[in-house]
Design a protein around this nucleic acid. Sequence first.
RNA 1: GCGAGGGUAGCCGAGCCAGGCCAAAGGCGGUGGGCUUAAGACCCGCUCCCGUAGGGGUCCCUGGGUUCGAAUCCCAGCCCUCGCACCA
Length: 887
Amino acid sequence: MSNRYTHARVQEYWQHIWEREGVYELSDERIKDGPGTYVLGMFPYTSGSLHMGHIRNYAITDAIARYRRMNGEAVLHPMGWDAFGLPAENAAYDRDTDPESWTRTCIEQMRDELERMGFGYDWSREITTCDPDYYRWNQWLFNRFYEDGLVEYTGAQVNWCPDCETVLADAQVEDSGEETGETAESHASHGDGVCWRCHTPVQRRELDQWFFTITDYADELVDGLDDLDGWPDSIREIQRNWIGRRDGAEIRFAVEDDSIEVFTTRPDTVFGATYVAVAPGHATARQAAAGDEAVTDYLDRAADGQAEGMSGVDTGLTATNPVTGETVPVYVAAYVLDDVGTGAVMGVPAHNERDHAFASEQGLPVEQVLEPDEGQADADATLPYTGEGTVVVDGEYEGLTSSATRDRLLDHAAIEAATTYRLRDWLISRQRYWGTPIPIVHCEDCGAVPVPDENLPVELPEYVQTTGNPLAASTDFLDTDCPDCGEPATRETDTMDTFVDSSWYFLRYLNPDLSAAPFDSDVASDWLPVDVYVGGDEHAVLHLLYIRFLTRALADIGLLDQREPVERLVNQGTVLHSGEKMSKSKGNDVAPHEYGAETTRLFALSAAHPGQDFEWTATDVSNAYEFQQDLYRMVTAFSEDRGGRIESEPHDAYLEREIDRTIAAVTDEYERFRFHRAITEIQQFARLLRRYRNNGTPYRFAYSRGLRVLAKLIAPLAPYLAEELWSALDGEGLIAAADWPTALQDVPAYRVERELVRTTLEDVRDITDVVDITDPEEIELVVAPEWSYHAYDTARDVTPDGSVVGRVMDDDAVPDTEVAADYAVDLAARSGGFEPVLSPEREQTVLEQATWLFEDEFGADVTVRRAAPDGEQAGTARPNKPAIHIS
RNA sequence: GCGAGGGUAGCCGAGCCAGGCCAAAGGCGGUGGGCUUAAGACCCGCUCCCGUAGGGGUCCCUGGGUUCGAAUCCCAGCCCUCGCACCA
């Protein structure tokens, strides 16, 4: 048992030391001194236990933070708790406790688990969103936004989850996932979404609600995506789609004494409008319904979700096309949606698929007004033609291209450039207890009045079990005086969406105890953007859009200089088990500690690069476990024995070069966050060290350096193990605070050297195999003659159309022999494929240093020598490819 | 339908941005051998085809193209994954 490494046996010790030394902490002074490296993982919700997704996420951030720290950077790597939210209320209800106690218990558990995993956080900066000291700043920011016109209070049709008993933001409504399939009629009810949390079908309700006007930033949010090079394309694309900006025009059609505004991205097709259609919820539809039974019926059917496909009803109204002056009928049609554009369209059956379908269904005329551009589709293919073209109607626009027409039409009095967005304002009201109270007082005379800053925080009342909202049940909370007129008034009982809490938490970490402001603007402007943020892509349009919005909003009220919160975003992939996403609800989850905490994190990092999904397999986990044991055994064996040569031998140089090469390779992989590649390199290196060790008495300097490098390279990935190795090797201080290793020699040249050894070994294997030499006695490696290197260099320098053979043979250093001539012909045939080669001296040295590998593998004596100058004995020797004689 | 990202040997996956060092890393699985009383662990090979001296053939979804040279660059197509979608 003694030479087995068990992290559980040492974790407490190292945790204690780390804490005592404060290795993961940054002082406030250091923070104030200016930007270091800010590494952030997703804000954990306080569910009470870590799942594999957390482990993976935090293993990645921890590796990055540790690596950067070892490179001498001041790394801010904080942790805190997204502590408000509905599940705590449900848990409290089920367990007959209150959300706060429940949440605090969960936090204790989770902090403990995180520490056990060996994650190095600056716990001095821990924040908890359900602390009044935190959420008061939500309220304070609400007030600032209120002053700045970013807060709206309006009655709205909102998403209501009957199970959660609260409203949901649009982004929190998911597709039901029920395939509508071939029965294309089911779109009728539009909005058959489900709650993102409990998957209960969402209902619609009309409520007075609080909003942040994120749509004010729609343009900037979508434009900013172009410059977010550090973000994955997929996330940028998702945000682009979600914001859904469409440029077009609004066109006013006169209807009786009134008018209908239609939005279109193709105003150039206005000449072909043969009808106007409005959504069932459009004002014109309601007016038309008065006294018209057919329209009333249709609206009823639409309300029940029964109006399907291309159904519609003629209102009897006519609309005048402002450009052509023609009058066209006005329809109510279910395919026109209330919340898209203006809720009304001009029907151009000749140039729009849906309009064409509707016109066919309703027997409306189709008028072609655009001639397809040359080369576009077959000229008179069947309509609708939806591409660009040339206007073919008589009049001032005739002959203009689509885009010229669009420009010209903007001069028309009834047409205005317009842009629509899919993005809606952020509904932040929640009818729940466990959140930040919205700091508003409702006064009969003064209306909704913000609570003055000096009266913040508005604290949550004590929790009571009730079927409704506990805030509304507490008269102590509810009853207050109007801040404006002093008359009795009542408090707002809605709390804020918890995404408000997590929209600026990364700023609070910089000064978690600041009592005068949510964060220090100067410090925050210095430290932002966050250098690396790691999180799952499930928050692409929630959290990750909100932080971009909030950051801009904060900049605009003068609290921040930065407008983007995150420089580089890494989306970690999913951990699969039996082909499915690992999750408790599927029953295929593996608890993080089941296989040992450090093994689990090491496995998670070794299995794939951060962005990639990977499968949890027992074999791969056990490989990660064995890998730890290997390293531990190697180091303890060395530290117990401490022997070794003092004098170096030629083959030690081989090891020293490999140490340098490994450092370079692993460093490169760390820079790219490719931890699985780093581990592969480290494993190969460890194997080489073992082999070297087994080959004879190691040179103490090189071997111990190799082991120390090994410990350092693994330190960001397996911190407990690394500390154990480091102390066994008598390393100075803590490895967590040690310097990243550097190569002693120039590394780039190694690649060629390494290839030389590798291919030569392969060649020997090949020969013994093909010729069936089972037990070679002697292997002779003959480095090519000097002249062949000259010839090689000469050939490489010849311009593409020059005569290679001539130039090579003209070289004085190249002898006038048949062998040389053949080689020149060879070189000529290469035309360009000249990989770098070593000098003959270097080649010989490298091979000599590697002879132990040949001896070890083939059990033969090995000699290395240079070919005689005339080259006659060189045989097949070429630069980078020694002749091989086996006997 | 629109948009994004992909298709690499039995499997998982590097490589592709910056073409030549690519028959193509590493792991898994399979297989031969070493160590061992044995198992496990560990170590060294092999794992597209042919080959009695390091060679030859075919290969990175398919088909074209650029280039002295393509897994890598360009074009077209097929397939997969994801996002959006009666979106005007």
